[in-house]
Nucleic acid binder design. Sequence first.
DNA 1: CTCGGTGCAAACTCTTTGCATTGAC
DNA 2: GTCAATGCAAAGAGTTTGCACCGAG
Lengths: 139, 139
Amino acid sequence: MKEQRREWPRGMKRTRQRECVLSVLENSDSPLSAMDICGSAQNRDCRLWLSTVYRILELFVKEEVAVKTTMPDGGTSLYELNRYRHRHYAVCLRCRRVLEMDNCPLEKFVPEFSESDFRVTGHRIEMYGYCRECDGKER
Amino acid sequence: MKEQRREWPRGMKRTRQRECVLSVLENSDSPLSAMDICGSAQNRDCRLWLSTVYRILELFVKEEVAVKTTMPDGGTSLYELNRYRHRHYAVCLRCRRVLEMDNCPLEKFVPEFSESDFRVTGHRIEMYGYCRECDGKER
DNA sequence: CTCGGTGCAAACTCTTTGCATTGAC
DNA sequence: GTCAATGCAAAGAGTTTGCACCGAG
C-alpha cells in the first residue's frame, strides 16, 4: 500500500490526530470501522483516543472528506475516503471479502415511483454472493 | 392496512409472541426496528419483552421469513418480511420517508470486476434524495 | 412430561457527550 | 493569547446473554 500525499483539506485545523486518521484512510482500499482506524493509528505510533477518532470522522464526513457506510446486516459503521468517484462493492457472504465493482448499474437508470416524485441525489448499491475462493465451499 | 393471512412457517413452534411479531411485520409496508415491533405489539395487547423480539427476529431471519437491513448511515437494524420479490427503496434525506421503487436497475445489469470472479446471488440498492414534500425545503 | 421459548435482569458493544487540559494558529 | 481540538471518563442507545419459569407439542 502506497502513501499517496494529498493536500490538506481546506479550512480544517491541522492536528497530529487528524493527519493520522486521514493517512490511515488514504492507505486503505476498503472501508474501516472507527476501531480499525484507532488500531492502525496506534501501530503508526500515533496515540489517540477512540472518541477522538469518532469526532474526527464526524468532521471528515461533514466536510465530505470521508463517507460513512454500513454493511447491510448492520453492526458497526464503516468509513472510507470520499474519492469523488462512483464506487460500489460486492461482499462475499462467506469470507466477507469486499470486491470493488468496475461499473455502475445506475448510469443510465431512471427510477420509477408509483406514488410520488422523488429527486434522487445519490444511491447505494451492494452485491452479495461468493468470491472465487469461496464459491462452492460450504457455509 | 389489511390483515393478510399467510400460513405459519413450517417447523417453527407457534407461540403467541411469534404470531404477534409476524403479524406486525405482515401489516407494515416499510422496514421496522426491533423497538418499533415491540411497541406495535404492545398496542395489540401482546405483552412481550424486547429481548424476545430480538430472539424472534433472529429466528425469522435464519428461517428466511424476514430480512434484516440497515439504513446506510448506520444506526439501528431494520426488519421486514421476506416477500420473495424484488423491492428497492428510496429514502428521503430530510423526512426519512421511504418510497418503494417500481423498477430495478439490475434487471439487465452484469457487474464487472477487474481483479476476480464473483458469483452474485443478491443485491441491495437504495436511492437517496428528497421526496416531493421535502424537496427545496431547508436542512 | 419434556424441552425449547420467554420474562426479566444484567452485561456488552458501539457511539456520543461533558469537562478540564493541550496545542494550533 | 485565544478558542477549538483532544484526553479521558462516563453516559446512552441498541443488542445480546444467562437463568429460572412457563407453556406448546
